[in-house]
Amino acid sequence: CHSECLGNCSQPDDPTKCVACRNFYLDGRCVETCPPPYYHFQDWRCVNFSFCQDLHHKCKNSRRQGCHQYVIHNNKCIPECPSGYTMNSSNLLCTPCLGPCPKVCHLLEGEKTIDSVTSAQELRGCTVINGSLIINIRGGNNLAAELEANLGLIEEISGYLKIRRSYALVSLSFFRKLRLIRGETLEIGNYSFYALDNQNLRQLWDWSKHNLTITQGKLFFHYNPKLCLSEIHKMEEVSGTKGRQERNDIALKTNGDQASCENELLKFSYIRTSFDKILLRWEPYWPPDFRDLLGFMLFYKEAPYQNVTEFDGQDACGSNSWTVVDIDPPLRSNDPKSQNHPGWLMRGLKPWTQYAIFVKTLVTFSDERRTYGAKSDIIYVQTDATNPSVPLDPISVSNSSSQIILKWKPPSDPNGNITHYLVFWERQAEDSELFELDYCLKGLKLPSRTWSPPFESEDSQKHNQSEYEDSAGECCSCPKTDSQILKELEESSFRKTFEDYLHNVVFVPRKT
């Protein structure tokens, strides 16, 4: 048989008469490798580009789960590009990614509803959504962080984005990388972005840091009482949809009607710091009717980097990364020049730590249904340095008659930039024990000054392991946590139920 035959053949030295091919099969003959313009397919066939392209389009058009959109890589027609490569849609070739590779997620039936953290986790790592997304989240724990972890990498949506009755959302900033909504599939009414009845939605994105392009379709905003109209108009300008909307697409009466839409800028007039305090004062603000001013709200939190936005980490279910302080308005003076500047002394802060701070007014709604208010920009203030805590785990070892090696770990709280350490030492008198000992005694162990690591005695271990207080009263049991108490109650309830079950099964009433 021919060298490319495997198993047997019907005619000697003829690659077209093989029972099976050793390498690849091409047009009725066995070959060692697939010549151009053919590609290896499933490690035994040679196919042309049209064959591989037909497989790709067949799966793409069917949208069946589990099928493969075949691509070409290293002269092979394979189910998908290997790690580190992405497909070129024009020629199906796998090309190296520039940075992290995109991950295209194809949605069944063309859309997916995100109504819980669990459903959001199914899209973790996706960068391109081939379909439409509907966000409908009523509640949950730590929602802002969970949504950002699972949806934060999405850069492109081919269909539309719909935010509907998501009472738990305060902001859409968890879509931190969303840059493009194509609108290839539109919501009824030709809408590519749809926001309806979101009672706590206050911000779409921080438009000073976020760009969003909507290729096709219109915007729809109705019944978002805490979303200011200025935020919607800003989205029109940034996304390129200005002029597409009709009169009733953006409701003037049901958007922002319960919001404090600040239209003035508060400026800080005085800032002073110490290692654990920050004193702030800002310019006074009074609405047209000074009785509408209820006070100020001061927001602050630790910020290692200057990239904080107002609604980071917030949701309507209680999660809030900001510390909020309510401040009463100052006494009002008739003389504008003698107006008191409101302020606040922030206490209990960490030394040498940068804080993000902003302040906003708290006002009631005027009778004319106009909203007044003022808010400052987010500023960054760093507390002063102070003395560091003591170095940890000092170790001293003498390696000769004239040297001592000293080692330690950095302090747990540096409280500033540590530039150097101060080492103090003092000579001590020799131990009298060394002169009084009889060095001729056998088995004498000389006193040693070398360091030995501390260890816990058996008594201390027994005390720590004991669940009861000892007789001397030195140790006591740790208080039980809520989960331990709940577990004990469940076990007790189970024992009672099981005992009742045994009584009912074992003891049967005697027939009379």
Rank of each mutant, 00 (worst) to 15 (best):
S166R: 00
R176W: 15
V170R: 05
P287F: 04
F268Q: 01
A251S: 05
Q245I: 10
N190A: 09
V397Q: 13
I135C: 15
W207F: 14
T273R: 15
K162S: 12
S208F: 10
N136L: 14
Q245D: 00
S402Y: 05
K350F: 12
N190M: 14
P287K: 07
R281Y: 11
P342Q: 10
N248S: 12
R347S: 13
S230Q: 01
S132A: 13
I327D: 01
R179D: 15
S321F: 11
S400L: 12
T215Q: 05
P304D: 14
P351I: 03
P351E: 04
Q354L: 12
K234L: 10
N320L: 08
E236K: 09
E109R: 15
L172M: 06
L186Y: 13
L161P: 01
L180N: 11
S173L: 09
G110V: 03
R281V: 15
R247W: 09
H106F: 12
C317H: 11
S192G: 05
V390M: 10
S269C: 14
G373I: 04
S158W: 13
S319I: 11
V104H: 09
N248V: 08
E146S: 02
D292E: 03
G139Y: 11
L345C: 10
C317K: 01
W205F: 11
T386Q: 08
W282H: 11
P388I: 00
I271Y: 15
K242V: 14
R281M: 07
S116Y: 04
E283T: 04
R179S: 11
H210K: 15
V363F: 03
S116I: 01
L266Q: 04
H222R: 12
I357E: 11
I134A: 10
T273L: 06
G159M: 01
I135M: 07
S239T: 11
S338H: 08
W286H: 04
S119Y: 11
H106L: 10
E146Q: 08
F220A: 13
N255E: 06
K177D: 08
T383E: 00
T215K: 10
E310V: 02
A149P: 08
R179E: 09
S376R: 00
P288E: 13
P388F: 00
S319V: 10
L212I: 13
R179I: 13
G217L: 01
F220D: 03
Q339I: 07
S166M: 04
A195G: 07
E122W: 06
E109I: 15
L107P: 12
S119D: 14
T323S: 12
L180I: 14
D257P: 03
G217S: 03
E187R: 08
G140F: 03
E146A: 07
E148C: 04
D206F: 12
G318R: 02
G348P: 11
P304A: 07
L172I: 15
T118G: 15
A385S: 13
N198V: 14
R281F: 15
T254C: 08
L280M: 12
T113S: 13
Q245T: 13
L266I: 05
K267Y: 15
H341Y: 09
D328K: 13
K375L: 15
K267M: 13
L108T: 08
R247P: 07
P329L: 13
N340F: 11
H222A: 08
L392K: 13
S239I: 11
N136H: 13
R247M: 11
Y355F: 05
E237V: 01
V363N: 12
N224R: 00
A316S: 08
S166I: 04
L147R: 02
Q306N: 02
N255A: 07
K242N: 12
P287E: 06
S173D: 12
T323Q: 09
D377H: 04
L392Y: 07
Q245V: 07
D115N: 04
I181R: 00
S366P: 14
G295D: 14
L279P: 00
W352H: 10
F174T: 04
T241L: 09
V104K: 02
S119V: 08
P394G: 03
S260P: 12
E264F: 08
L133R: 00
Q354Y: 15
I114K: 00
P391Q: 00
G295N: 15
A356I: 08
N200M: 13
P394Y: 13
L293H: 03
L151K: 00
L362Q: 01
T127N: 12
W344P: 03
P351A: 11
N399Y: 05
F220T: 13
M346G: 11
T215P: 15
M346D: 00
S192R: 00
N136A: 09
F290P: 05
F290M: 02
L204F: 10
V363E: 05
G189A: 08
R202P: 01
K267T: 08
F268K: 00
G189T: 08
T353I: 14
F296S: 06
V324R: 04
E283R: 14
D367S: 08
L108H: 15
P284M: 15
V324E: 15
L123Y: 11
I271K: 14
L161K: 00
F268W: 09
P388V: 00
E368R: 14
A374Q: 15
F290N: 03
W322D: 02
R291I: 01
H106A: 05
I163M: 14
Y270T: 03
E231F: 10
T241Y: 09
S376W: 01
K234E: 15
A251E: 08
I214G: 01
L133K: 00
A195V: 09
S171I: 02
S173F: 11
G152W: 05
Y285W: 02
R369L: 06
K177L: 07
Q121V: 03
E236T: 15
N340R: 03
N340Y: 12
D326M: 02
K301D: 12
A356R: 03
Q199I: 10
K234T: 08
Y355E: 00
G159T: 01
V117G: 13
A303D: 10
K226P: 02
L180G: 08
S116Q: 02
S319T: 05
P351T: 10
I188F: 07
T127C: 08
S396P: 02
R179W: 12
L279S: 06
V128Q: 02
L201Q: 03
N211E: 14
K253H: 10
Q314Y: 07
E264C: 14
D257Q: 01
N387R: 08
R247G: 14
R370H: 02
K234P: 05
H106G: 12
F311W: 12
D249G: 11
I163P: 00
L265Q: 14
G313V: 10
P336K: 05
K177A: 11
W286V: 14
R182S: 13
A303Y: 02
L227F: 05
K253D: 03
S173K: 15
K267G: 07
T361R: 02
T113L: 10
G140M: 03
S274Q: 05
G318A: 13
T127H: 09
K253Q: 10
F221A: 10
F175E: 02
A303W: 03
S158L: 13
P304N: 15
G373L: 05
I135Y: 01
V397M: 14
L227S: 01
P304G: 11
I154A: 04
L151N: 01
L298C: 09
N399P: 10
E283A: 10
P288R: 12
N320R: 08
R332T: 10
Q245G: 14
G256E: 03
W282S: 02
W207Y: 12
K242Q: 15
S376G: 07
N141M: 10
E146P: 07
S398Y: 04
A303L: 05
